[in-house]
């Protein structure tokens, strides 16, 4: 038996909206410690890793580890039927072929349930090592979203360079070139409006803007985003989802032929 209840159902709605374009399908791996998902995009250049901890839910029970194969487009259709203020409960029997989603309105006067057909998905699990990065940048998630959106209108790839001067995003395309530099800025009173650059050594890497732009669909989930960079390694883009867990994106760099 698996059961997970979250009063703030809108978080689940936002999570699925953030992932559904990047990842068509994947396994929700549930265990006594929580729910995780690891999935690649269809071209296998980026990896999404979602972790929702058991204690982040208002109620959580999982008697047996299960991999529930989810089609995210279909899950999104069902979650669109939940109100933003609804409490959402996910339920599945052991070895079930459906996941039940129950929506309860805030004043308990409307209760609905939907069964999502589960899929059987073969997936390879990748080990993501904890590592020290050359540069770590925490910035407002809305700022990240704006930068990648603006640059996507100019070019296809972005060179991200972190130096002691700050972090520079550069692109070029048919219309011309663009450079946006962010500097370390801890003056805003609110921590979520600060930009914090932790630089161990300068690093410069090129990435496809299409994916970085796609990651920013997670903006409604968190006020801040963290970018981590090391030479020749994937960029790591992380959104903390309150006390519930996190969404992590890894994107392979563009390298010279």
């Amino acid at each position: 038996m698996f059961e997970a209840r979250i009063t703030q159902g809108s978080v689940l709605k936002k999570l699925v909206e953030a992932l559904k374009e990047l990842v068509t399908e994947g396994n929700f791996d549930v265990s006594s410690t929580g729910l995780t998902l690891q999935a690649m995009d269809s071209s296998h250049v980026c990896l999404v890793s979602l972790t929702l901890r058991d204690d982040g839910f208002d109620h959580y029970r999982c008697d047996r580890n299960m991999a529930m194969g989810i089609h995210f487009g279909n899950l999104s259709k069902i979650l669109k039927c939940a109100g933003n203020e609804d409490t959402i409960t996910l339920k599945a029997e052991d070895n079930a072929d459906t996941l039940t989603l129950m929506f309860e309105s805030a004043n308990q006067d409307r209760i609905s349930d939907f069964d999502l057909k589960l899929m059987s998905i073969e997936s390879e699990h990748l080990g993501i090592p904890d590592q020290d990065y050359s540069a770590e940048i925490k910035m407002p998630s809305a700022e990240y979203q704006r930068i990648v959106r603006d640059l996507t209108s100019i070019g296809d790839t972005v060179l991200i360079s972190a130096t002691k001067e700050g972090i520079k995003f550069s692109t070029s395309g048919d219309v011309g070139t663009a450079n946006i530099t962010l500097r370390h800025n801890t003056t805003p009173e609110k921590p979520e409006e600060q930009t914090i650059i932790d630089l161990k050594e300068p690093v410069a890497l090129t990435f496809a803007l299409r994916y970085l732009n796609n990651f920013s669909k997670a903006t409604p989930l968190a006020p801040q985003v963290k970018l981590s960079l090391t030479k020749d390694l994937p960029i790591f883009v992380e959104y903390q989802v309150g006390d519930l867990g996190n969404v992590r994106f890894f994107l392979a760099p563009k390298i010279d032929d």
């Binding site: 296998h44 699990h125 990748l126 090592p129 994937p234 392979a252 032929d257």
Partner: peptide, 13 residues
């Protein structure tokens, strides 16, 4: 420029 599979950067577990 080219991009290699993200799987190449991580180990299978």
């Amino acid at each position: 420029m080219k991009q290699i599979s993200i799987g190449a950067y991580f180990t299978s577990s």
